[in-house]
Computed example of a mutant assay.
Amino acid sequence: MTTSPTTSRLLGIGWCTLVPFVVVAVYLAIGTGAVLLIGEPIVATAVLGMLVVVLVGAVRILRPQWLAHAPVPQAPRFGRTVLGCAVLAFLAGQSLALWIYVTAGSAGFDESNQTRHAAGALATLLLTMVAAPAGEEALFRGLIYPLLRKRVGILVSTLVTAVVFGLLHGNAVQFASSLPMAVLLALVYEGTRALWPCVLLHLGFNLAAALVPAQALGGLANPISAVLLCLAFASCAWMLYRQVAGGTAPGAVQGE
């Protein structure tokens, strides 16, 4: 018995709503418990990230068929397209985030910075450079994205995962800065079906955000720069999507 296009679309919408909602709800429930037990939110979040790595890793090793979606690409390989997209994703996200912060401010972003400062340098370093890249990639690219891809296409899975990833950061500034990165990471995962490239790229983004001074990016805090950089990144991401969805090209991530 065949399913009508309308029914298929409704099922896809339901799946794209149910999967992120359930996974994030469980994640937040465990995170709340970790904060109550540990008491320090940054340390608790770092512990939560490593717990996610263990749990998702166990599922991917013991029950790979739960997250598998065909066809499986060849061995991962990076090239100029991914690196160019990574640079544009960082600049576009930072420009948009700085513009939002300068224009409207963000109490949530300020509170997040205060929490990190209160936790101390060591806890913040552990979260930013270890637990966040590994834990968030395990949760979003290692669990949510492949679950979505079992029912819907690359583009929808990428956009849904990216939006949920941005929303989980809890404020407009971090949503804006992380959204381009999340789009890129989903496409990289689609082309490689491996988490380690996503973790390394995520680590690179966090490292760049920590090392590049805000003064160096101050000139990007305007709508013209934000729009132009976002358009440039969108063009690069579309090229990568076409390569991942339609085949391989020299100097690109190998695709389906």
Rank of each mutant, 00 (worst) to 15 (best):
1 M>A: 02
2 T>C: 05
8 S>V: 09
9 R>K: 10
11 L>C: 00
11 L>Y: 04
13 I>Y: 02
14 G>W: 03
19 V>Y: 05
20 P>Q: 03
21 F>L: 15
25 A>D: 07
28 L>Q: 14
30 I>N: 07
31 G>P: 11
35 V>Q: 05
37 L>Y: 09
44 A>H: 13
46 A>I: 13
47 V>T: 14
48 L>S: 14
49 G>Q: 03
51 L>Q: 00
51 L>E: 08
55 L>K: 00
55 L>F: 11
55 L>M: 07
60 R>S: 03
62 L>F: 10
66 W>L: 08
66 W>S: 02
68 A>H: 08
72 V>N: 15
73 P>D: 07
75 A>Y: 01
76 P>T: 06
77 R>W: 08
79 G>C: 07
80 R>G: 15
81 T>L: 15
84 G>Q: 15
92 A>G: 03
92 A>T: 13
93 G>N: 12
94 Q>Y: 02
97 A>E: 03
100 I>Y: 09
101 Y>S: 00
104 A>N: 00
106 S>T: 03
108 G>K: 09
115 T>D: 07
115 T>V: 15
115 T>W: 08
116 R>P: 00
125 L>C: 05
127 L>Q: 15
127 L>P: 02
128 T>V: 07
130 V>L: 15
132 A>T: 15
135 G>D: 09
137 E>P: 11
138 A>N: 04
141 R>L: 05
144 I>K: 06
149 R>H: 01
150 K>L: 07
153 G>T: 06
153 G>M: 02
155 L>M: 14
156 V>W: 15
160 V>Y: 13
164 V>E: 13
170 G>F: 06
170 G>E: 09
171 N>A: 00
174 Q>T: 14
174 Q>L: 04
177 S>L: 04
178 S>G: 12
179 L>S: 01
179 L>R: 05
181 M>A: 14
182 A>F: 10
183 V>S: 13
185 L>N: 05
187 L>Q: 05
193 R>E: 10
194 A>N: 08
194 A>Y: 01
199 V>R: 08
200 L>I: 10
200 L>G: 01
200 L>H: 10
202 H>N: 11
202 H>G: 02
203 L>P: 05
205 F>D: 02
205 F>Q: 07
208 A>S: 06
210 A>G: 10
211 L>W: 11
211 L>Y: 11
211 L>F: 13
212 V>H: 04
213 P>Y: 04
214 A>M: 06
215 Q>S: 08
217 L>E: 01
218 G>N: 02
218 G>C: 00
219 G>F: 12
220 L>N: 05
223 P>T: 01
224 I>A: 12
226 A>Q: 00
226 A>M: 00
227 V>S: 00
230 C>E: 09
231 L>V: 12
231 L>K: 04
232 A>R: 11
233 F>E: 05
237 A>S: 09
238 W>R: 07
245 A>T: 11
246 G>N: 01
248 T>R: 01
250 P>V: 06
252 A>V: 11
254 Q>A: 04
255 G>P: 08
255 G>W: 05
